[in-house]
Design a protein around this nucleic acid. Sequence first.
DNA 1: TGTTTTCTAGGGTGATAACCCTAAAAATGG
DNA 2: CCATTTTTAGGGTTATCACCCTAGAAAACA
Lengths: 211, 211
Amino acid sequence: MKTRDRILKTARELFNARRFGNVTTADLAAECGIAEGNLWYHFKNKRALLEALSDGFLDEVEHRLALLPSDETRVLEDYANMIEALVSEIRRYRFLYRDQADYGEHTDQLLERLPGIYRDTLAQFQTFLHAMVKAGHLDMNRERLPELATNMVIILRYHLEFLRESGADSDIGSGAVASAVQQHLTLFRHALTPDAATQLDAALSDRLLNA
Amino acid sequence: MKTRDRILKTARELFNARRFGNVTTADLAAECGIAEGNLWYHFKNKRALLEALSDGFLDEVEHRLALLPSDETRVLEDYANMIEALVSEIRRYRFLYRDQADYGEHTDQLLERLPGIYRDTLAQFQTFLHAMVKAGHLDMNRERLPELATNMVIILRYHLEFLRESGADSDIGSGAVASAVQQHLTLFRHALTPDAATQLDAALSDRLLNA
DNA sequence: TGTTTTCTAGGGTGATAACCCTAAAAATGG
DNA sequence: CCATTTTTAGGGTTATCACCCTAGAAAACA
């Protein structure tokens, strides 16, 4: 892997673990096994690093937001694909959501988009839920879908923080991710047909093993 | 209000808004309208401030955890009381949950207790849910109560962060708190009897007006 | 091979922030 | 009124950290 990419990957991991403001550039260089000067060779300053990361994040988000129910018969697979993407996005980039207070006043492209991202994500979930209802997988009053979507997004977004705050373990590995997905399923599993439930389970566990 | 208390209150508010590590003692003194030296007169150092705050927090938590269903006929009022306390606790002290990475290496009394607090809180919610089932207010399979309790706690804990991240508003006033409570109600309102639902609504809105 | 790119070691700077110190002014309270 | 507590202004000290600079080594590459 090229040094520049290694820096970005390591920075992502350190920022997620210890937050942006608490990772010094010296730490980062040490963790990458390079001289600190080499950081400045690849990135103008710490903020440039943040911007490179948030560019990657924004790209991923757009791709994930484009994942929509395609065919009536494949809603559940499509949903599982979207969840896989969302969960990987949250696991790898959660510091971007979380550490806004560390970035300072700078008008970031990211800060402008975040509200829209949440809005679009909620709309995306509602679209999937409607599709599940239409396909006969989900039995729920249409009026309840918006609030359910909100609950789903919150659980997926914060279950990792919840595990961490409650001291489950600092290792936010695939186990934690899997349990976030399980937890979000509890929000609507009771309203799924038995068939749909087993199908969803299968599709999700397929996709979460190679994570 | 005594200066010492004003410092604590202002510190709480600033820490909640901008996180512990991003509030300088100079900022704090300015916001209190006192000289910085006066901070050191009242508190040995920044960490002592943190400890005073977390002592207050731990006290409140113990009181809140002691709020349990008393009488079968009063489960809903008791629940509303507990929610009122929990929500005020979260609004006023959320930085203590959130900013763990900022505290440094010191083995805080708080860091040791947090996992237990979450465990006890989950148990508390399960107790209330069981009581609601027993009193005939809530119609839900017992097996689903633990997962429901988890979802309730997560929504209550993180709805404020969610609003903030999604840029709703930086002012985390009573409006935001009320909407967190509403959101958590969506998790089980559908399984309440109509009577219980209106009773709970009334009890909660009573208590959230004087917040 | 020679040239360009990448990288290192290490000293240096400027800003920021926690925290100290002192001498004196207010406020408080008995 | 006197003694004690509280508070102020302002000038340190020390540590940390982002970031700069330079001279040269090692890689990459052509």
